[in-house]
């Protein structure tokens, strides 16, 4: 029989085991890998190399390029997701005919796995048989099919659109929740004071949304920086590494260059970057609660 004193420990044991197995162990193992030489084609060379993997990764050919690609993608994605989320939330906040159905439709992409949505968008943007090209051609907007994913900028744009489609609904839900707690009296008061729609938005809606917007911005930055699945299914990092963001770079180091040491070092760097963003996120959350 377990004593009363050890009962609390026994109750948390299963959860602790799961956390240890799926979080703590992989983390510690990654740290171990990052401090050792670990190239799969040289299985016998497993020397302790200290921070050499980190040094090689940071001074290597790809790191700063992928960091730049990540920054460009994050800026494009976060701005687009936030604007999309805000626009959709404002629309859904109006009581219009069919708004309940609209809410479901808008939220649908969020429920679709990222890999599936990536494949859908890859087909949509395809330069030879994509439906987007078909539509643009039929409506006379283009005179021939455009190879959207063969140019660095447009490939980034395609990825951003797919990202917004997938992530936008969540931002919309956050913002809609915030919009729905704004007292209607404030708008009435603003109207009495002569405020139009823009001023109502500027001086009533926006101040109320500020904290939620901050959350959305930070959360979406984290999601954009950690993006991997869309790159995997849509572009494979191309063309010319234009979409090879840091998560993809880590994957490439491990699965294609077979260098687990470099991959683990990159994963830890990426983890540190995300941890920093999470801390900012938590601070913003506390500020909102206060």
């Amino acid at each position: 029989m377990i004593s009363e004193r050890s009962y609390p420990y026994a109750t948390v044991l299963p959860v602790m085991l799961v956390v240890a197995l799926f979080t703590v162990y992989p983390l510690l193992h990654s740290v171990y890998l990052s401090l050792h030489e670990n190239v799969l084609t040289r299985p016998l060379d497993n020397d302790f190399v200290g921070l050499q993997n980190f040094r090689e990764v940071v001074t290597g050919y790809y790191f700063w390029r992928s960091l730049w690609s990540t920054a460009v993608f994050a800026v494009m994605a976060v701005a687009a997701v936030t604007l999309y989320g805000l626009g959709v939330a404002l629309l859904l906040n109006q009581v219009v005919l069919g708004s309940a159905l609209l809410k479901v439709v808008v939220l649908l992409p969020w429920a679709i796995p990222a890999v599936i949505s990536g494949i859908i968008w890859r087909w949509i943007f395809d330069g030879d048989y994509g439906v987007l090209n078909g539509l643009l051609l039929v409506t006379g907007i283009v005179d021939r099919y455009v190879p959207w994913m063969s140019q660095p900028f447009s490939a980034r744009l395609c990825m951003t659109v797919a990202h917004v489609w997938k992530q936008g609904p969540l931002a919309a839900v956050f913002l809609l929740a915030a919009l729905q707690v704004i007292p209607a009296e404030l708008y009435d008061a603003a109207r009495i004071d002569g405020a139009g729609r823009w001023h109502g938005f500027r001086f009533v809606t926006l101040p109320y949304l500020k904290a939620t917007l901050a959350l959305v911005l930070i959360y979406e930055t984290i999601v954009a920086v950690a993006t991997f699945d869309l790159v995997y299914v849509m572009t494979g990092g191309g063309p010319a590494d234009a979409t090879a963001i840091i998560g993809w770079y880590a994957y490439t180091e491990i699965f294609r260059f077979l260098n687990l040491g470099h991959g683990a070092a990159l994963a830890i760097i990426l983890g540190g970057l995300l941890l920093g963003l999470v801390l900012v996120y938590l601070r913003a959350l506390r500020a909102e609660e206060a």
Partner: peptide, 21 residues
């Protein structure tokens, strides 16, 4: 050279040839 070449796998190349493009 078709710009789609930079996103094309072999199967996409075949489709472009099959279509007469």
């Amino acid at each position: 050279l078709s710009p789609t070449s930079l996103q094309a796998a072999n199967v996409d190349q075949i489709r472009a040839l099959q279509s007469g493009a």
